[in-house]
């Protein structure tokens, strides 16, 4: 699904969090948003998900206003947001339940996605029995289970250790190549953005604006250590550094 943001501005009691954000994400594209802490990345995703109203501007999904589409968006939260009172299966079933899908079918669908993220053995476990990496796999399965046309991910692997993060990045890249979802992925980890994205939107320090729109022409599966990736990483890091210093 194509996502278009037109002049999105968001203020909280006079504090400008986002200023004039305009960009388009094409159908099937994996776009990463990279920016310094506090520049409004989460706020931007929340606005796109319909959890927050923009102060100004307009959001279009396939050319139509957001309100017609709320249910076609999946959101993966940094803090996982799993329901502790539901086991893995029932967590993944949640969105299907809201959509009124009958019990048997939603169990079947949920199991399929749990298998996809490699957690079939843990269907009956409760979130507190899972590691961080497993929890986020459940979070991803839950978001994908309703087959959303747009997937929003807010630093989904931010709380994980480096090894686990790399593994999940690879899994996510594979999943995406299979499912071909439109993905908007927020991170402040430049390596992650280069590994996953078709495009990287660099944001300025608060108030957040789009500073650069970089298209990555790197072949997939990505090689983290390729000279192109290294050069790109250096360039992005320098830009980010400037932004962070400016904000101090």
């Amino acid at each position: 699904m194509e996502l278009t943001l037109k002049n999105i501005t968001k203020t909280f009691d006079g504090f400008v969090a986002l200023e004039n954000i305009t960009f388009t994400v094409k159908e099937g594209e994996f776009v990463c948003i990279v920016g310094p802490s506090g520049c409004g990345k989460t706020t931007l995703l929340r606005i796109i998900a319909g959890l927050e109203e923009p102060t100004k501007g307009e959001i279009l999904l396939d050319g139509e206003p957001l309100s017609h589409h709320e249910r076609d968006i999946g959101f993966v939260f940094q803090e996982y947001g799993l329901f502790p009172w539901r086991n893995v299966l029932r967590n993944v079933e949640f969105g299907l339940e809201i959509r009124g899908i009958p019990k048997e079918e939603r169990t079947r669908i949920a199991k399929k996605y749990i298998e996809m993220v490699g957690l079939s053995k843990f269907e009956r476990n409760y979130p507190h029995e899972l590691s961080g990496g497993m929890k986020q796999r459940v979070g991803i399965a839950r978001a994908l289970a309703v087959n959303p046309k747009l997937l929003l991910m807010d630093e989904p692997f931010g709380a994980l250790d480096a090894q686990m993060r790399n593994i999940l990045q690879e899994e996510l890249a594979n999943l995406w190549m299979k499912e071909k979802k439109t993905v908007l992925y927020v991170t402040h980890n430049v390596d992650e953005a280069i590994f996953l994205g078709d495009r990287i939107l660099l944001m300025t320090a608060s108030p957040g604006r789009i500073k650069e729109d970089i298209t990555l022409e790197l072949p997939r599966p990505r090689d983290r250590a390729s000279p192109e990736a290294t050069a790109l990483r250096k360039r992005i890091l320098e830009t980010l550094r400037e932004e962070i210093i400016k904000s101090l």
Binding site: G50, L51, E70, I73, F75, G81, F94, I98, V146
Partner: peptide, 14 residues
């Protein structure tokens, strides 16, 4: 109640 649970539900259109 952790507001994130409510956000999750809302993103699913609850």
């Amino acid at each position: 109640v952790n507001p994130i649970y409510i956000d999750v539900a809302r993103t699913f259109g609850a």
